[in-house]
Nucleic acid binder design. Structure first.
Length: 901
RNA sequence: GGACAGCUAGCUCAGUUGGUUAGAGCGUUCGGUUCACAUCCGAAAGGUCACAGGUUCGAUUCCUGUGCUGUCCACCA
């Protein structure tokens, strides 16, 4: 008595399967990588999501892609490590906490630094818990035993180590620079975190002594005592550089100086002259540095005016602007008001607070100093960043981002790494004594001995720590506790680092190429002497159906993965985000699309159900079926063709995944199972069943599809796996494709001919509105094809749903027949009095025309001496074959056209 | 202002060294369907491959230019 496994339900229900399967995977230990393994390693560092709560679809894309990389390589026999984690997200988290405090009517100063940080830590712990659950829902096979967090002690240790080393190497310095200050969040913002938004603001022109100057920000002009013109400007020829004059200004008379500068001034624009505000404008600051001008602060760090503003001191700049205008207008200095002016305002990309340039003392990383050892040369950080991509050590997919990357580096300036917020890695610098010049400075991993030291109150830019992510996460936490070890020792004594670094692929959205990817390259090459990853795979942004960015604030269009997964299944969601999506391109996601892939998953499910029923009919337990490859003696044409197609599929999928062409591979898998296996092979199996082929092919396919659809394939594997195979599907070896035998390869082509014949018959019948039951005639021109069609006649009839079919190798005239041409076959359906001659003639005429021009083109190519002499012989032969084929076909068409006359 | 991309079916996009009839999914229309699956099957319609030149026997593909769209960077007294 055969013991059948539990029969599959009529439809696949992901809800009943996914959580159970994930648990089984986790318990099986399949996710856990072994640093002691002899196998080649394959490592992916999961880009750490911000520890601020819910994951969104962008994270789902990332998880789906990376899970495919990892599962594929794990099955291929690599020691695969996918390391998950979270980022403390300094500014983002800090501002969320400040908002939470504000809801209680508190500020951070009310609760103090310690209490503030305690609250943030609790909040982050909660968020991490939620996110872990969400990552599991996507089926991500990451190694939870190695989960990391950017604020873990071992990671913080790395941050301090790198800071100190950079400081000792002279790459980190402290200096007064103009920075973008966010008065709202009370912190500096890095250059690339600044966003420009258009804003309509009036543009005023004022009389300034003998000059007319224009501005949209009169409230900053209190301290302006220089006027700049172009040295070549004829309008201002009578003024010399350094000339002084007295004039009436906002708070009375001032003495102003004329400066001539060619760099900053565009003669074409406006009046060709301007006043300078060095403290609150980057270009003015540079000018002031060049000419050693005095700099004076006008606006304080809360956005209020300083005593220089006289009566208006203490007033917020927004309120001050109309007052300043009133004053100037009253003095008769306002010349013109342009209400239609639109200009760009700088805002913080987090929080969107308007930024105010300020001169501040900050910590910077020098990107131009050539002191770093790299490939036996002294190079700058910038130079290394360029070199690793230029030399091909790091490959970016898609390639076009290379150019963007280089362009960005060319314009890169020193990186300001200090932030004036509380949440983050505190700068490992301590001071003793008073005064910026006289105090002692200590830079180290731990606080210095002795009393009287106070730590720098600033924290580091988030990207400083995430720049270390690929390797700081691989440092052994126990080893990191030993404070006597150097950075080199830490790396040397961490088995994970030795085994799993550099990582293989870094996959992320293209919008953080600069923020993060470039910083990782910078920090990792500097600190470890290794590149962080071999390949950068950039995915696009998820958009709504009408192309808008999905945002949480718009629940109408925003798709929540946690709502979609129970409804359609994680497998369907994964497919919908990968098939049809090219790297680096944004893509639109909507429910119907996900529904389409749910149908695909269900199709596979039902095909499996069919196979199961066939097994039952034959009285065999699928688990005992040895599978294809065994007992190949009695293979039909279709069987051989299937075998060959499957081999081709294995080869294509393997190569495609090795080359990160995920969309293309997804399409191949989709079309193999649906368009080929189900539509043709299973239909034939209804008459003549080869259980070995059915079960064997299904099994191999489950392995191939597993990286894309881990849940449904794992569930089906349980029902179809060979009794002798051990473990779950996740741990199965990747199939090796045997080079298809010649006879199988031929079978694949022959079977394709049959498919073509049947498709043509269907098409003619539909075209001419033929009732089923009419007699069909296929005219073949070679004995080989005649034999083929005759031997498969039953199949053809069945599949074509025709009652009669005759094969004729002697071309006869069929006046009343619709026809179609295949390679060496002509399919006719005799249709007394039904056929539309004009239509038929038109069709043939068109085809004839195209063939003629094609033949002509090849002929002239073959007549072209240059081509014949230079091209390889095979190419010339192919061209000759092509020509012969075309001419044969032309003859057939001519003949057919004659019969229609 | 600079750079990068895109423009192919109603929509979303493929198109791998220039070559026979430019593809897929969705959508539309028509037809079918007890027998794995209506989460199904079959078929059809629908394209001057943005435009103009050039190279070539032949260009969606290569080159130049133009237009439109998008993104990034820089700047705006």
């Amino acid at each position: 008595m055969v013991n059948f496994p539990q029969v599959l339900d009529k439809a696949y229900d992901p809800k009943a399967v996914e959580d159970r399967i994930y648990k089984l995977w986790e318990e099986s230990g399949a996710f856990i990588a072994d640093a002691k393994s002899d196998k080649e390693s394959f490592t992916v560092s999961m880009p750490p999501p911000n520890a601020t709560g819910q994951l969104h679809l962008g994270h789902s894309v990332m998880l789906a892609l990376e899970d495919i990389f990892i599962r594929f390589n794990r099955m291929k026999g690599k020691e695969a490590l996918w390391l998950p984690g979270t980022d403390h997200a300094a500014i983002a988290t800090n501002s969320i906490m400040e908002r939470k405090l504000a809801e209680e009517g508190l500020t951070k100063h009310d609760v103090g630094r310690d209490e503030f940080l305690k609250r943030v830590r609790n909040f982050v712990e909660d968020s991490k818990k939620t996110m872990r659950g969400q990552i599991r829902k996507m089926g991500a096979s990451c190694d939870w035993s190695r989960e990391k967090y950017t604020m873990d002690p071992s990671l913080s240790r790395c941050v301090n180590e790198v800071f100190k080393r950079m400081y000792d190497d002279g790459l980190i310095y402290r200096g007064h620079r103009i920075v973008s200050w966010d008065p709202k969040m009370q912190t500096t913002v890095a250059d690339d975190e600044v966003e420009h938004v258009e804003k309509a603001e009036p543009y005023w022109t004022f009389q300034y002594g003998p000059f007319q100057i224009s501005t949209s920000r009169p409230e900053t002009k209190f301290g302006d005592k220089y006027v700049v013109v172009h040295p070549d400007d004829p309008r201002y020829k009578k003024f010399k550089h350094g000339d002084q004059f007295e004039c009436e200004w906002i708070n009375g008379k001032i003495t102003a100086t004329v400066i001539k500068d060619a760099e900053i001034i565009d003669m074409e624009q406006g009046t060709g002259c301007m006043t300078v505000t060095p403290w609150h404008d980057k270009a003015d600051f540079d000018l002031a540095e060049r000419h050693e001008l005095e700099k004076e602060q006008v606006i304080d760090f809360d956005g209020k005016l300083l005593p220089i503003a006289g009566d208006l001191a203490g007033m917020h700049i927004d309120e001050a602007r109309p007052k300043v205008l009133e004053i100037l207008e009253a003095k008769g200095l306002l010349i013109e008001t342009d209400e239609n002016n639109i200009h760009n305002v700088s805002v913080n990309y987090r929080g969107k607070g308007i930024l105010e340039p300020q001169i501040m003392e900050q910590w910077f990383i020098d990107v131009n100093k050539e002191v770093v050892d790299w490939k036996n040369k002294k190079m700058s950080l910038k130079g290394i960043m360029q070199d690793v991509v230029k030399s091909g050590d790091i490959k970016i997919i898609p390639e076009r981002f290379d150019k963007t990357y280089f362009h960005w580096i060319d314009n890169l300036r020193d990186w300001c790494v200090s932030r004036q917020i509380w949440w983050g890695h505190r700068i490992p610098v301590w001071y003793k004594g008073k005064g910026e010049e006289e105090r002692e400075v200590y830079v180290g991993i731990n606080p210095p001995e002795g009393n009287g030291w106070t730590q720098d109150s600033d924290t580091l830019d988030t990207w400083f720590s995430s720049g270390l992510w690929t390797w700081s996460t691989l440092i052994d936490p126990e080893v990191a506790k030993d404070s006597s070890l150097s950075l080199e020792d830490l790396l040397k004594n961490s088995p994970d680092f030795q085994k799993f670094h550099p990582t293989q692929v870094l996959e992320t959205a293209y919008d953080i190429l600069f923020f993060w990817v470039a910083r990782m390259i910078l920090m990792t090459t500097y600190a470890t002497g290794q590149i962080p990853f071999d390949t950068v795979y950039l995915h696009g942004l998820v958009r709504t159906r009408d192309g808008r960015k999905m945002s949480k604030s718009d629940p109408e269009t925003c798709i929540d993965p946690l709502e979609i997964i129970p409804k359609y299944g994680a497998d369907a969601l994964r497919l919908s985000m990968i098939v049809g999506q090219m790297p680096g391109n944004d893509f639109q996601l909507y429910e119907e699309k996900i529904g389409g892939y749910r149908n695909f998953v269900n199709k596979l499910w039902n095909a499996s159900r069919f196979v199961q029923m066939k097994c039952e009919d034959e009285g065999v337990d699928p688990h005992t079926v040895a599978g294809s490859g065994s007992g190949s003696e009695n293979l039909s044409l279709a069987d051989r063709a299937l075998q060959s197609s499957l081999d081709t599929l294995i080869a294509d999928v393997t190569k495609g995944l090795d080359e990160y062409r995920l969309s293309e591979v997804g399409e191949k898998l989709y079309s193999f199972i649906w368009d080929y296996f189900c539509d043709w092979y299973l239909e034939l199996s209804k008459e003549e069943t080869n259980i070995n082929m059915l079960v064997g092919t299904l099994r191999t396919f489950l392995v191939l599809l597993h990286p894309y659809c881990p849940f449904v394939t794992e569930e089906l594997w349980e029902h179809f796996k060979f009794e002798k195979s051990e473990g779950m599907l996740i741990a199965q070896p990747w199939p090796v494709h045997s080079d298809p035998k010649k006879q199988d390869k031929d079978a694949e082509r022959d079977f394709q001919i049959i498919i073509d014949v049947i498709t043509s018959i269907r098409s003619i019948r539909a075209d001419q509105g033929v009732e089923p039951g009419l007699k069909l005639k296929a005219i073949v021109h070679t004995k080989k094809h005649q034999k083929l069609l005759e031997s498969q006649q039953e199949h053809i009839e069945r599949l074509a749903r025709l009652s009669e079919l005759t094969i004729d190798s002697s071309p006869t005239k069929h006046e009343n027949a619709a026809s179609t041409f295949l390679k060496d076959i002509e399919v006719h359906i005799p249709l007394e009095g039904v056929i539309d001659f004009d239509k038929e003639r038109g069709k043939l005429g068109k085809e004839k025309e195209k063939l003629e021009s094609f033949a002509k083109a090849i002929e002239s190519k073959l007549n072209n001496k240059k081509f014949v002499d230079n091209a390889p012989e095979e190419v010339v032969e192919t061209e000759k074959d092509k020509l012969k084929n075309a001419q044969n076909k032309l003859n057939k068409i001519e003949e057919r056209l004659k019969t229609l006359k």
